[in-house]
Design a protein around this nucleic acid. Structure first.
Lengths: 320, 320
DNA sequence: CGGGTCCGTGTAATCGATTTCATTAAGGTA
DNA sequence: TACCTTAATGAAATCGATTACACGGACCCG
């Protein structure tokens, strides 16, 4: 583990000069050559740790997402990654698993590791990012925002999307439309349900028994769909508030032999890896990648010193 | 950004004592209490950077995977994560994007960041992990191994899986069986193709025109499947060597209206988020999560000083 | 009561890079 | 030639934690 000192003594210069060579400062051509040669000979890799300690900021950003097995978030991650990489930052991907404690742990790591910034898709409403704010580290919320913090945010219009999806089902002639949404403390879940409520209310009336809260995963979709189909008076259509629960709901439909269009279905977010092209399902596509790209750009702006008031960017619900 | 020194002076003790409090060493109850109180008052978060510099090893491991959008790898990542977390390590997930240059960059970061170890699902045959080996950092290969290094590895029996899958198609009565596999420089791709070759050779003869190399992604499956269907004498069945290409192949089948069992299909690896339960498709399930768990355990062993000769663990091709 | 052990604590060195400040050398102008 | 500017360079401080070492006091035993 060669250090800058060993390179320096091998090249017959001071450590300062070695540092300057690697940071593109003015060094005579001759010495620069000797330094590079020595570095190669010793297979020198500069210590990011020492660098970060001295600079008090690392060249990495953290991306905290609630479910790494959800293609929506991995697609978002790709967006973040591409932008960050291009700007010379590495991305540390953290999976909070929809768990507030794990999320808090990762936030603390981001502080302790002097990360340049954090992009957070929060596990719930009440994530605490004060540690970062206090230390002046930029944070950008994506998809979901923690309450009570005045930070940049990138999101989609969940309510409008939920309304649109439900309206589409109404237009297809369905009358008893249920809603399967996510946890009650996640704003994307409640907002999408609000959109559903808007639409069914306008069309007649809301039956709150048709509203199921689940856990945004495939299993949540299973359970909620089964509950709905088992009701004495089951719905004739369902609006599902995210992609994975959509998969779960469809799996249940498939098992019971009532696939769309026998039962109406609309899903918020693209169905991952769908095989059949045009199933009788209404899909509200989400710009997952674009969310990531936008959040990363916002964060990089902040890292580079931009200090205008917090911005909220609402992306259109179109595929990117 | 409170430091250990400020906590120390507030609590009226030495920095050493503060450090000891946070590392569970013997400190009198009274002082410990004062230190904790001061730490809370200053909202002190210890610098992992300084700690890592001093200890010359961080409490993080890197997991480098070739495609973060492939559920096989994210599932593996979950396995790694669960084990690592339980042992107090955080996981830095890196997406090499099947790109050797990006992978090399991440390997260098792992060295420079003094990570405790690396789990690598290599982008190809010839990844260079010498930087880590030289510095005595443990590396575990998972799913795919770089050639020329004597390191721990966790894998599945690709050749047997390919053979089994192809045999299943033969038993279903298909006679002209094609194979869609991954890039020629990825060992999982060539080994699975070898399995296919074994089976078709035993059954009569191999037509190498029926072997297509693609890129292990959905698009690769598209192109290869279209090519096969467009042949003058198209195959009547196909063995697809990974999950995403399986999706791509099925999408093409769906478009052209020749779904299984009209055309035979066997896939190596579970089809992600499949909606229809028992399609007429043979699936060789893969223990993705289990691969991750096993690799993480091996790595932790090494981190904890285990220095027996390199081990290779071959997992059975069963769901975990 | 002398000597040994053990525990708690503080001082100061250390990890490896960056950077300020001072110094030297080189070049330019009057 | 004398003086001034500019560029290249090195010595040493710095970032914030850990830890080897030393010291003092409490305790125990013969």
């Amino acid at each position: 583990m060669a250090t800058i000192y060993e390179v320096a003594s091998m090249a017959g210069v001071s450590p300062a000069t070695v540092s300057r060579v690697f940071n593109g400062q003015n060094v005579s051509a001759d010495k620069a050559r000797r330094v590079r040669k020595a570095a190669k000979a010793l297979s020198f890799t500069p210590s990011r740790v020492a660098r970060t300690l001295r600079m008090r900021s690392s060249q990495a950003i953290a991306l905290i997402i609630p479910d790494i097995e959800n293609p929506f978030f991995t697609s978002m991650a790709r967006g973040v990654e591409d932008v960050a990489q291009a700007a010379g930052y590495s991305v540390v991907l953290c999976n909070s698993d929809e768990d507030h404690a794990k999320e808090a742990r990762y936030l603390e790591i981001a502080v302790g590791a002097d990360m340049a910034g954090v992009i957070l898709a929060a596990a719930g409403d009440n994530s605490d990012v004060s540690g970062l704010i206090d230390r002046n580290r930029p944070v950008v919320a994506v998809d979901r925002s923690p309450h009570g913090f005045d930070i940049d945010a990138v999101r989609v219009d969940n309510r409008a999307g939920g309304r649109e999806a439900t309206k589409a089902l109404l237009e297809q002639g369905f009358t008893r439309i249920a809603c399967i949404t996510g946890p009650g403390d996640v704003e994307t879940a409640t907002e999408r349900a609000d959109g559903w409520r808007d639409a069914v209310r306008a069309a007649g009336g809301v039956d709150e028994q048709y509203l199921k809260f689940a856990d945004f995963r495939v299993d949540g979709g299973h359970k909620a769909m089964r509950d709905l189909l088992d009701m004495r008076r089951p719905p004739d259509a369902v609006f599902v508030a995210n992609n994975l629960m959509g998969v779960g709901a469809l799996q249940v439909c498939s098992q019971r032999g009532v696939m769309p269009p026998a039962v109406g279905m609309a899903v918020f977010g693209d169905l991952p890896f769908a095989v059949m092209a045009p199933m009788a399902i209404t899909v509200i596509p989400l710009p997952a990648r674009h969310l990531g790209v936008t959040a990363a750009k916002l964060l990089l702006d902040r890292i580079n010193g931009d200090d205008q008031p917090a911005r909220t960017v609402v992306l259109r619900n179109h595929a990117s």
